[in-house]
Computed example of a mutant assay.
Amino acid sequence: MGEIKRRLRCCTRGFSLVEVLAVIIILGILASIAIPAYLERIENAEKSVCESNRLEVQRLYKMELVLKSVETSDVLFAEFSSLNHDMYCPAGGKYTYLNAEVVCDIHSHDDVNDKPEDEVPWL
């Protein structure tokens, strides 16, 4: 009887290959769900911060134009941007002043067509 217990204890240590593979597969499935959702959250946060920064830059630039009593130009906006470089697009986009609005070369075109109507939505 003692011999059987000793053999069973010896052979039951650790995990079997099937158990390890099952855990790895489950972790892979969870990662395939979590990583895209996390990346989408980061992208949405960058868009939100960019929009906020664009509106703030636009407000400050219009105030400066009024205070100096001048018309806008690309040179004035470039000078203004270089002096106020603390507000920028977190994705690395460049701000330009176009049609009385500050636009980002990465995120501004996304605002117009966030959801194309002819495509089927997917999860």
Results as ranks from 00 to 15, higher is better:
residue 67 L to S: 12
residue 73 S to E: 00
residue 77 F to V: 06
residue 41 R to A: 05
residue 67 L to I: 03
residue 48 S to N: 15
residue 52 S to C: 01
residue 79 E to S: 14
residue 48 S to E: 11
residue 78 A to F: 04
residue 40 E to N: 05
residue 71 E to L: 14
residue 67 L to F: 05
residue 61 Y to V: 11
residue 39 L to D: 13
residue 66 V to H: 07
residue 47 K to R: 14
residue 53 N to W: 11
residue 77 F to R: 05
residue 72 T to E: 07
residue 64 E to K: 15
residue 82 S to D: 02
residue 63 M to T: 07
residue 58 Q to K: 01
residue 73 S to P: 12
residue 66 V to M: 08
residue 55 L to C: 01
residue 60 L to F: 02
residue 45 A to Q: 10
residue 52 S to T: 15
residue 50 C to D: 05
residue 60 L to C: 02
residue 52 S to P: 09
residue 65 L to K: 04
residue 80 F to C: 10
residue 43 E to L: 15
residue 66 V to I: 10
residue 42 I to C: 13
residue 71 E to S: 10
residue 77 F to P: 04
residue 72 T to F: 04
residue 81 S to R: 15
residue 50 C to E: 01
residue 76 L to V: 14
residue 74 D to F: 03
residue 52 S to D: 05
residue 55 L to M: 03
residue 50 C to F: 04
residue 54 R to N: 01
residue 65 L to I: 07
residue 64 E to M: 08
residue 82 S to N: 08
residue 72 T to R: 00
residue 48 S to Q: 15
residue 46 E to L: 04
residue 80 F to T: 10
residue 74 D to I: 03
residue 78 A to M: 10
residue 67 L to M: 13
residue 52 S to W: 05
residue 45 A to V: 09
residue 78 A to R: 01
residue 63 M to Q: 12
residue 75 V to E: 14
residue 67 L to V: 03
